[in-house]
Computed example of a mutant assay.
Amino acid sequence: MKRTTIPSWVKRAVYFRDRGRCVLCDKDLSGTLNLDNQENYDHIVPLAKHGLNDVSNVQLLCKECNQKEKRAGNAITSNRYQSWYLYD
Rank of each mutant, 00 (worst) to 15 (best):
K2R: 15
K2Y: 12
K2C: 07
K2E: 14
R3V: 10
T5V: 09
I6Y: 00
P7E: 05
P7G: 06
P7C: 07
S8Y: 12
V10N: 06
V10M: 07
K11I: 04
K11V: 02
R12W: 08
A13D: 15
Y15V: 06
D18W: 01
D18H: 03
R19C: 06
R19M: 05
R19Y: 10
R21E: 09
R21I: 09
R21P: 02
V23M: 01
L24Y: 09
C25V: 10
C25T: 12
D26T: 15
K27L: 04
D28K: 12
L29K: 01
S30I: 02
S30D: 04
S30G: 05
G31M: 08
T32D: 03
T32R: 08
L33S: 13
L33G: 09
N34C: 13
L35S: 13
L35P: 07
D36W: 13
N37V: 15
N37M: 12
N37P: 01
Q38G: 04
Q38A: 08
Q38W: 06
Q38I: 14
E39Y: 08
E39F: 07
E39C: 11
N40K: 08
N40G: 04
D42G: 00
H43S: 00
H43N: 02
H43K: 03
I44S: 02
V45P: 00
V45Y: 02
P46T: 08
L47S: 00
L47G: 01
L47M: 05
L47Y: 04
A48N: 01
K49Q: 14
K49C: 08
H50Y: 14
G51T: 00
G51V: 03
G51K: 02
L52F: 07
N53S: 11
D54Q: 00
V55E: 07
V55I: 15
V55H: 05
V55D: 02
V55W: 00
S56C: 10
S56Y: 08
S56W: 03
N57F: 00
V58G: 00
Q59K: 12
L60I: 04
L61F: 10
L61V: 13
L61R: 03
L61I: 12
C62I: 03
C62F: 04
K63W: 03
K63R: 12
E64V: 08
E64R: 09
E64M: 05
E64F: 05
N66D: 11
N66I: 03
N66Q: 09
K68F: 10
K68G: 09
K68Y: 13
K70G: 05
K70M: 06
R71A: 14
R71N: 12
A72Y: 10
G73S: 11
G73E: 11
N74I: 12
N74A: 11
N74V: 13
A75T: 01
I76Y: 03
S78A: 10
S78N: 13
R80Y: 07
R80C: 05
R80G: 04
Y81N: 02
Q82W: 07
W84M: 08
Y85E: 10
Y85F: 15
Y85W: 15
Y85C: 08
Y85K: 14
L86E: 13
D88P: 07
D88M: 07
D88T: 10
D88C: 04
